[in-house]
Design a protein around this nucleic acid. Structure first.
Lengths: 190, 190
DNA sequence: ACAGTCTCTGACCGATCGGTCAGTTACTGT
DNA sequence: ACAGTAACTGACCGATCGGTCAGAGACTGT
């Protein structure tokens, strides 16, 4: 059952994230799926509908994580839990996250993408609320954008399954270091 | 002099980096320049030629920096000089760097983009040569991709000129911290 | 045997894409 | 006054884009 609908979603996700939404034609998606363009439009009413179906699960999951973060306020435990969940989220929804980061700004006016951009803004606001310094804002941006780039760059897209755990640990270490609370003294440098 | 040629380059750069190469039409570039599409094609033989002219300066500069890095081997001074030059490079060629990072993989078969991708690979190989651990590779990717994202995200594109210095200092601090030699003890966390 | 529904397809549509070309305008040096 | 050239333009081209539509098979329950 559902031979094609889910296949098409996966194919579209891979193409949208690597080649870009605008640069990916319905014809190409159909070819990769072994179908005709008309069949793609049978399962999804439009290219935009396909995009929405492609990224919706990741958006909803990210919304859950963000709600939990805002609920747990700024307790150290809450913050640590968020980082762990966030790393798992990025690893699970690698391609979707890469799409938000790389193409989000250029896909405005697509409702589901606007929703995703709004979530990123909520997340940024949360971290920016406690610090006005440019360096802290930059740490957040580098952590988010860098992690997303790292996990979907051409070289790293093909993770061996046994490397995922190591990647997860490394990512959590680096992000924790980058997003350490502002109360931590700056022992590095002078 | 050069009323339009240079203007077109700047307009194309801004559009390519924000909306994407594939999603930017020659018609739109012409409109933004107050010219006709034919005039754009008068100054640049093709859309691809315009892309090459747009990113060539940044590529040549990055090549210089990379050559200097490889020449200075792994001396601490050489590494520190590289980081400083690299930060200046990213700040000066923000939009171009953002293009490489976000669209490089999808623009293969364009000669000048292949050249840029090759440079990124040389840079990655240089840092990967001294460490095989996934974490160190990830640190490099996060630093490069994160810095590029941070400096060309919609919110940060409009830097006040007096904030550039502060941004430069913060960026240098964070990158130095991220790319600290593997010999440095991990004093953060446990 | 029949009707209904799901999946799929080729033919076709208007719009837009990158690109070509003949020709116009305006400014130059002679 | 004239020729040359740089800058620019509208009309046009084939290709491709997203999307519509009528209908062909395949599989159901009756």
């Amino acid at each position: 059952m559902s031979t094609s609908a889910e296949d098409l979603r996966a194919i579209a996700l891979a193409e949208f994230s690597t080649a870009g939404y605008a640069a990916t034609s319905l014809h190409r998606i159909a070819d990769l799926a072994g179908l005709s363009k008309s069949s793609v439009l049978y399962h999804y009413a439009s290219k935009e509908t396909l995009l929405e179906a492609t990224v919706a699960p990741a958006i909803h999951r990210m919304e859950e994580i963000l709600n939990a973060l805002e609920a747990s306020a700024l307790t150290p435990a809450g913050r640590a839990a968020f980082l762990s969940e966030f790393v798992d989220f990025i690893l699970l929804y690698r391609r979707e996250v890469n799409m938000f980061i790389n193409q989000g700004p250029s896909l405005v006016d697509v409702p589901v993408i606007d929703e995703a951009n709004e979530i990123v803004h909520r997340l940024a606001d949360f971290f920016a609320a406690n610090t006005a310094s440019i360096e802290e804002k930059m740490r957040f941006g580098i952590a988010l954008g860098g992690a997303a780039y790292m996990l979907c760059s051409p070289e790293s897209m093909a993770f061996d399954t046994d490397q995922v755990d190591e990647a997860r640990t490394a990512l959590l270490t680096i992000l924790t270091e980058l997003l350490a609370p502002v109360t931590a003294p700056a022992v590095i440098g002078e």
